[in-house]
């Protein structure tokens, strides 16, 4: 009983840490994806602006 008790307590603490850790990783990945998307769109916007200016 004591060994099982310890093992399951360990599992419980692993879960209590693992879920927030997985969430932090997902937040970090989403942040880098959003940053990349913002940079790409800013670049695209600037390219379009300079094309419009050169036409004029």
């Amino acid at each position: 009983m004591d060994q099982r008790n310890f093992t399951y307590m360990f599992y419980g603490f692993v879960v209590a840490w693992l879920i927030p850790m997985i969430y932090v990783i997902s937040l970090a990945r989403r942040s880098s994806r959003l940053r990349k998307e913002t940079d790409e769109l800013k670049q695209l916007f600037e390219e379009k602006q300079s094309q419009t200016r050169s036409k004029v």
Binding site: M1, D2, N5, F6, M9, G12, F13, A16
Partner: peptide, 12 residues
């Protein structure tokens, strides 16, 4: 009554 497993309550 529960032994060490009760410690889960501190996060649960």
């Amino acid at each position: 009554a529960q032994g060490m497993i009760y410690r889960i309550i501190f996060f649960h």
